[in-house]
Design a protein around this nucleic acid. Structure first.
Lengths: 227, 227
DNA sequence: TGATGATGTTTACAGCGTAAGCATGAGCAC
DNA sequence: GTGCTCATGCTTACGCTGTAAACATCATCA
């Protein structure tokens, strides 16, 4: 009997390959082989490779899981979103590359989830436009931190550092020397997923604090902002 | 006379092609043709394609320009960094893809620049570890917002939205319906470079506000130097 | 003058996405 | 059962990719 496949099986196989060997290893021929089928057979169920990658992202980043708890206010909702998105990135490192290009992260969030978060911000007195900006901002923080701390890291940081900042050697004043020493200490700490999670919180917290501060206007005499 | 080339000429040609037709159009053969030379000739001056792409990033994201003004304190320094990095992304859309993978953005910043920013934060009373986290955080915000708002956008957002959030149709309660309507309004506004810059500021501002808040002792909400 | 090293060229190979045409088999009307 | 139709997997083929290896040309220097 001929082995038969469908779009879901193809997507699962592709995700499995990507989890194991990275997105670059997901070629039509290899996915086909994994399923005991020729590479061209996939085109009966999937438009092209981009379509397959999109399906992989859809399967992997479940939008339901992003919904905040029912009793969570805006701050907790945004924190929840950030943690869940981060989890997805950590579990499927290739997903970050998909999100960055060509798909956008926001597309992964369902309309219901997006709207719920906007509503929570609205409840706190944020106008609709600002709420949208802040939602994008929170998502951007997760993506950005993930880009800077999550694998893959194919070359050592030191390699690129030497290559990309050759002018440092020409600096001679004492301030600059101190700065370079500080930077070296900064870079000495490893950038990995664990530290990434710390940095995520270290970034998200002041961001949310800043929002909170702007939501309580009576104490800010010189601020003309006000929602 | 045979046309001669060097690494800089190769890099310039590659950047020019990428600016025109995207990073995917930068193939060894095409860069060679652009220079009136066979594709293989490039390997005399460049290790491989990854090396070339790295050089492109190094040339494009000048680390010197990222140095904050001499008289700038920590906040202004971080804002300056964010604006300059954003400029680079806007001017060379392909750069974002390079930064995300395989190179990391931090690698583009010279040790001197990194150290200077850390010193400014240190002057404000931030301990070294936290300063590093905040520096990464500020960079992450730029990258994340760029990922979500900058071209290329090869498929319409609606396309992926329908594909990735099919469950929305099953929702029937009124709250969820409202949420979806809010989300639709949110998505209706275009995500482009101009809005991206707005969102960048809308994200960076509360982030920096939050840092500032944590730096000021609780007894002095006093703020000068209005914007 | 002859050797040497640098550099551009040619050829070749394995891999990629995918278009086009062929082969197989299930489901269905008669 | 017979024959048609359609879905689906297979084979072949094309142009593209990065790059290894061998060859050709040239400038420089002893």
């Amino acid at each position: 009997m001929r082995t038969t496949i469908d779009a879901d099986a193809i997507t699962d196989a592709a995700v499995s390959i990507a989890d194991r060997d990275g997105l670059g290893a997901v070629s039509m021929r290899r996915v086909g082989t994994e399923l005991g089928v020729s590479g061209m057979a996939l085109y009966r169920h999937v438009a092209d490779r981009d379509d397959l990658v999109l399906r992989m992202a859809a399967r992997t980043a479940s939008s339901r899981a992003l919904l905040p708890p029912a009793d969570a206010a805006w701050r907790e909702s945004l924190e929840h979103l950030a943690e869940r998105v981060w989890d997805s990135f950590e579990q499927h490192p290739w997903l970050l590359g998909v999100v960055v290009s060509p798909t956008r992260m926001l597309d992964l969030a369902s309309a219901e989830q997006t709207g719920t978060l906007l509503a929570r911000l609205g409840d706190a007195g944020v106008d609709a436009d600002t709420a949208g900006d802040l939602l994008v901002g929170a998502t951007a923080i997760v993506i950005g931190v993930a880009c800077l701390t999550l694998p893959p890291l194919p070359r050592g940081i030191d390699f690129t550092l030497d290559r990309l900042a050759p002018r440092d050697a020409a600096v001679d004043d004492a301030d600059a020397a101190d700065a370079i020493a500080d930077a070296a200490r900064f870079r000495a700490r490893p950038f990995d997923a664990a530290r990434g999670r710390d940095i995520l919180r270290a970034t998200l917290t002041p961001f949310l604090d800043g929002i909170e501060e702007s939501l309580t206007p009576p104490r800010t005499p010189h601020r003309d902002a006000g929602a």
